[in-house]
Every structure is written in C-alpha cells, then in structure tokens.
Design a protein around this nucleic acid. Sequence first.
DNA 1: ACAACATCCTGCAGGC
DNA 2: TGCCTGCAGGATGTTG
Length: 282
Amino acid sequence: MPELPEVHTITSDLKKHILDAVVKKVEIKAGFSVSPSAGVFKKKLVGRKITDIHRVAKNILLGLDSGDFLVIHLAMTGRLLFRKTGFKADQWERVIFTLEKDGKIGELRYTDLRMFGKVKIINKAEYKTLQNKYGPDPITETFDHYRFLELLQNKRTNIKNALLDQTVISGIGNIYANDALWIAKIHPGTKTSDITPPMAKNLLAAIRGILNESIFNRGSTLDDKMYVDIFGKQGEHQNYFRIYGKAECPRCYIPVKFMKLNGRGTYFCENCQLKTDQESLL
DNA sequence: ACAACATCCTGCAGGC
DNA sequence: TGCCTGCAGGATGTTG
Ligand SMILES: [Zn+2]
C-alpha cells in the first residue's frame, strides 16, 4: 500500500517528467467522484501549467499556475501511471489527464480498484489547512526524540496505533509501523505512556532508517501488485521486510506472532519485542 | 474530548 | 464447480 516511500517515489518521478507540463484535457470515468464535481474540476484544470510537485504526508500535490493545487491521495489501491497517448488501457482507470510538455503529449492516469483514493482541487487556504493537520514528516523534517515522545504521549493508545495516526507523525502506514517497531525491539501493544526517551530515540531512528531504505528500494509492492511506480514498475523493498508478513523472526528464528491491533494486521516477535525499555533491564 | 470501532469498495483465497 | 465468508488497510464518520 502506498505509504511515505511509495508516495515519495511517485512524487519524485513525476517531478522529473511532468513539471511544467500543461493540462490539455481531463476525463473522469463514470462512477468515480472528484472534488469539486466534474464540470468545475475540469474548468479549474484545463489550460493550467503544473508549476510545482511535492508530497505532503501521503498526498501528492501538483501546484498549478492558478495558485490552486491538484491533490491526489492513493489510499490503498490508487495508482498514478504516466503513459503515452494510445498506450493500452489500464485496469481500473478513474481519471485521465492529458498533458503537453515540450510539444509532446502524454497521459497521467489515475487508476483505483477500490476507489478509496481521493482526487481533488484545493485553493491556497485549503492547502494550508491540509498541511497543518499532519504531524511532522520523519523524512523532510528535523525533530528530536523528545518532541517525538511528546507527540506520541498526546495519544493514549498503543504505540503502533499512535504511529499510524497521521496527526502524530505523518507518512507511516501499517507495513513500516510493524517493521520500525521490530527494529526498535518494541512490542506493538506497548502503551504510549510506557515509552521512555531511549525507546523513543531508538524508534525514531528505526522509522527514519526503514523509510529511507524503502525510498532507496523504490517502495514495496505486495503480492496484490497494487503499488507500482508511474511506469508500472514494482518496488523492491518487499524483499527486505523485517517482520511484516514474515513467518520467522530474523533475529530469534522463532515463529512470528500475528494479532489484530485496532483492526490492523500486526506482526511481532514475542521474544525480542518487549513492552519495557530493554536497556533498563541490563 | 477522545479512543475505539464501523465504513467505504473490490478482488482474491479458503472452506464446504 | 460455485457460493459464501473473511481479509487486505488509509482515512473519515460515528459511537460510547
Ligand atoms: Zn525476535
């Protein structure tokens, strides 16, 4: 599923290929809703130049020369595919943007099997609101583990659920939450109130480490093949998962435990992931 | 106020 | 074979 590394990969590829492109045509497929509704959406987009491309949390933002932003959130099954006009139709096409850059025409296709994703145009004020609702970004923002711990402890829940809360820290999804907790040797069910500064330090380093590693590997493509880059190519980081989807702990060589935590699949090792500060036991 | 739960939707796997 | 159930999980709306 697209989390920070996958959205980062897509955003940086888009920056290389469609920055300064002009939107020539927009087609919204039946059954899919954009915001504002189709007529206004097209009017705000056709003829506009894409002057800026960046990521906010798991959103892809395309800044327009009108001052508006096209915001795309892929949720779980959304894809952005960059195709030559006439390239065979993709599965689950929802919105087709025809773009012109340097006299060449191409298409940016938003496809989404389950249609949980969002495609919308927002103005500058709404952009500010969007930015402000998220917790700090572990890749693009500098903050220390004391600040991180403070944010975590604003939530009275377990640590894994807090990591998935985008208002605490942005960009982490279920896969990297599982793996970061394994790297930091923290049990996913640990209450945020039981996290100590050394644990927060390890965890923040684990989060930054695993996200950067996945960015290097161009993201993770699961067996469902849902995440691919803008050229339809799979990521590689699924080959380096630590605990997510694993049967055996790579540190202890014992079976991995699986449970549902707040409704999400949670993998952990009951031997090396504890609910206490492991340093303090020494 | 806020944590936990239900919901949106489709495709696929597993059981009978 | 084919029907049914459950599962996947990001974000939001609802419940307690
Ligand atoms: Zn272990």
